[in-house]
């Protein structure tokens, strides 16, 4: 609250907050401002960036990162990390690829089995974290390495190759391709279906976080776990469900990648897990849990996608992306810390 105390009819102790102040306190505002700035910068700097064709590329790259960032943001609000989320996108895609091209399973069955595998891994992550009380950072670092190893070694052992070949020859490939990999023609550019999935996932996550009991519990277990338990919040169930959410999102992204490109590399998703966390933090999530937003994480991913592609369009060395991400992350952490201090300490 500002020092400029202005009496109002409602209550003289509350200084009147302008709409601007209220808006500025939302967790996703920093990311929104940054997203607009990045957009304007590349739109002015390069010819293609703001065209339909240019936009379709950076939107697609933002969409798959965005879906993961939203799920990871929910988990972070719940006070945990999932480093296996990146490897999961490769694992699920590879699983479908191996099951269909090498074992001849019906494609939809393979997709379903891959989802069940992902959810089982999510439950395993959750149960290990809850049962042992260890930091999820360590537990999921373990599952991350397991998945990374399995992805490469098992794919090589079964297919003798490091990527899935001949996916588009699988019977009924068209059906899941329409659901996960198609694109619409919009104004000369292509709008990939993954972008629609991204919007749906962000909307559902926002609904869950802000309007449901589950959302209340997610904020609570991340904000103060002991207190939550004392008032009857099912802490274990909430956290395990969150790990399942990131695993499920990993499956969705795995399908989107597989059916958009009709192939999947065995190292897909490796190294992306920190990008998701960075997007979530840029979007206003606290590393300590209990605070953040799904829309913010989606915006964080948008910033990533735009910068990733904008640097290519501008013809720069794309290693600058990493430097840019680092700066964004540091700025976001400083901003978030400041917001948290105000929220917790302001009297």
């Amino acid at each position: 609250m500002t020092a400029a105390t202005q009496a109002t009819a409602a209550d003289e102790r509350v200084s009147r907050q302008s709409t601007l102040t209220r808006v500025l306190r939302r967790p996703e505002v920093g990311a929104l401002v940054a997203a607009v700035a990045v957009f304007v910068f590349f739109a002015v700097q390069t010819e293609v960036f703001a065209t339909a064709n240019g936009a379709s590329t950076w939107l697609r790259s933002a969409s798959t990162i965005g879906i993961m960032a939203v799920a990871v943001a929910m988990l972070m609000i719940g006070g945990e990390f999932d480093l296996s989320a990146g490897a999961m996108t490769g694992f699920t895609g590879l699983a479908v690829g191996v099951m269909t091209t090498h074992w001849g399973l019906p494609i939809w069955l393979a997709i379903l089995i891959s989802l069940l595998l992902a959810l089982a891994l999510g439950v395993a992550n959750g149960v290990m974290v809850i049962r042992t009380g260890l930091p999820s950072f360590i537990v999921t670092l373990g599952t991350f390495f397991v998945l990374q190893g399995v992805d490469v070694a098992l794919t090589k052992a079964i297919t003798g190759d490091v990527a899935i070949q001949g996916m588009s020859l699988v019977p009924q490939y068209d059906q899941p391709h329409a659901v996960f990999g198609s694109a619409l023609d919009v104004n000369g550019g292509s709008l990939y279906v993954s972008v629609l999935w991204w919007i749906v996932v962000t909307a559902v996550a926002t609904w869950v976080l802000l309007r449901t009991r589950a959302g209340n519990w997610i904020f609570a277990v991340g904000g103060a776990q002991t207190s939550s338990r004392q008032v009857g919040v099912p802490v274990a169930r909430t956290k395990i469900a969150l790990f399942c959410t990131t695993a499920g999102a990993g499956w969705l992204v795995g399908m989107l990648l597989l059916f958009t490109t009709s192939t999947v590399q065995s190292n897909t998703g490796i190294g992306q897990e920190f990008i998701y966390i960075i997007c979530a933090v840029v979007g206003g999530c606290l590393l300590t849990g209990g605070y953040g937003s799904a829309v913010g994480a989606a915006l964080g991913a948008l910033i990533y996608g735009m910068t990733n592609q904008g640097i290519v369009y501008a013809g720069w060395d794309n290693n600058w992306l990493k430097a840019f991400l680092g700066v964004m992350l540091l700025l976001a952490v400083l901003l978030n810390e400041w917001v948290r201090k105000r929220a917790e300490l302001a009297r």
């Binding site: 904000g223 103060a224 209990g290």
Partner: peptide, 11 residues
Amino acid sequence: VYQDLAVVPLM
């Protein structure tokens, strides 16, 4: 009502 009050400060 325990001393830590069982509240979540940021909510």
